[in-house]
Write a protein that binds this DNA or RNA. Structure first.
Lengths: 221, 221
DNA sequence: GTCTATATTTGGATAGAC
DNA sequence: GTCTATCCAAATATAGAC
């Protein structure tokens, strides 16, 4: 932004570009070897560098994971921004489309799904900055669902995340590349829609809107 | 079984007992360090041995994973056998109870869930013998559901696995040790029940029972 | 900024004595 | 069956020359 030192600016820009290239290469390796199978040697080879050079861009392997985490969230954000204009306004269709969007994004890259949503990497914890991006994404999703008049409390939200991620998980674990669970997306979305609608009607009949967390539904155990 | 060489018998029994001890220790390490963080050194320390001694019992680390996989399935089998006598006969209640059972088993040991159901360990593939155990478990589950008159084709089954594992996944990933998704088990089970019942009614009205895979529901994409 | 060389650690696996 | 000693490979990370 400063006009003062353009050469610094250019240098910094180049630095950032190289960083981004490395992250892209890291994702390629992760997709190929598995997220936990990522090694700096293979990343370096892919960007035509030696391993020590990577340390000019990332302080540690965990730092690289963190950049991947941030970039994955950026991708999801871009993916959502790009498509949510086309979302149907009808609530039922909107929920179906939302489920399809999430499913497509997640299953199109299982390694990314694992890093962003499953927290299964050995000792990785996202930095506050990267975590903030994840929160931003969740907030956007939440808003979209609330805007459709479908979600009224955290329980509704938890229900939808469980249903959608269940489809994704089974698809990835038991039929990678196939469509066994993809074919169930609309069915499940409709189930969720009907449930939320009838719950809303029940609440409406009861008059006053009770606060969240006082469900009449008894828990298990 | 043979009466001929009792000393062999005793020795073999002891050998098997030590093997089982090692597997138990391995599970403890896996729960503590994460499934991928399992190291032979830590397992050996826990059974008061040196690493090379483990090789008297397991040919490789993957062989140990395989034994853990087999034992995990045995545990699930025992867990099911022990409790399915108490399952309600009423179909709706039976489905609820089944969801609760699966949820309890899975969330009570996330590392085990990961190895048995998520296939996320680096280069691990179960041996044919261990895989057979996994199939046996799935068959038992399938029979129980079919006996309740709830599941008629693979699509029904896939729906139930998606819903139940969605709850488990969210619970483990986003609220480990808590009950945010546990509280939704009955809700989701009832949703599934209502869906399967009304699907059955629809099929009944249409007369002939159409074969699986010809759903009128269009897939996404 | 990138490299060569190297340190360091760790973890799986084997040889061979007891 | 268990151990000590050792090997080997891989992988992260650093030092210091260019």
């Amino acid at each position: 932004m400063a006009l003062g030192l353009p050469s610094h600016d250019r240098r910094a820009r180049r630095h950032e570009a190289t960083k981004a290239e490395i992250v892209v290469a890291a994702w390629e390796v992760a997709r190929h070897r598995g997220l936990a199978g990522l090694t700096l040697a293979e990343v370096a080879a892919r960007v035509d560098m030696r391993v020590p050079s990577l340390y000019q861009y990332f302080a540690s392997k965990n730092d690289l994971y963190d950049a991947m985490f941030a970039q994955g969230n950026d991708e999801f954000l871009a993916f959502l921004e790009e498509r949510r204009a086309e979302l149907p306004t009808d609530a039922r269709q909107r929920l179906r489309a939302g489920f399809r969007l999430y499913f497509e994004f997640c299953t199109s890259d299982p390694a990314r799904y694992q890093l962003l949503f499953q927290r299964t990497v050995p000792g990785f914890e996202p930095s506050p900055a990267s975590y903030a991006k994840a929160v931003e994404v969740m907030t956007l999703l939440r808003e979209d669902l609330a805007r459709a008049g479908l979600v009224h409390d955290q329980e509704d939200e938890d229900l939808l995340t469980a249903l959608s991620s269940g489809l994704v998980d089974q698809q990835i674990a038991n039929d990678p590349g196939g469509d066994r669970w993809a074919r169930l997306i609309d069915v499940v979305a409709d189930m969720a829609y009907d449930h939320l609608k009838s719950k809303q009607r029940r609440k409406g009949r009861q008059g006053a809107r009770r606060p969240a967390g006082t469900s009449t539904q008894g828990g298990p155990r």
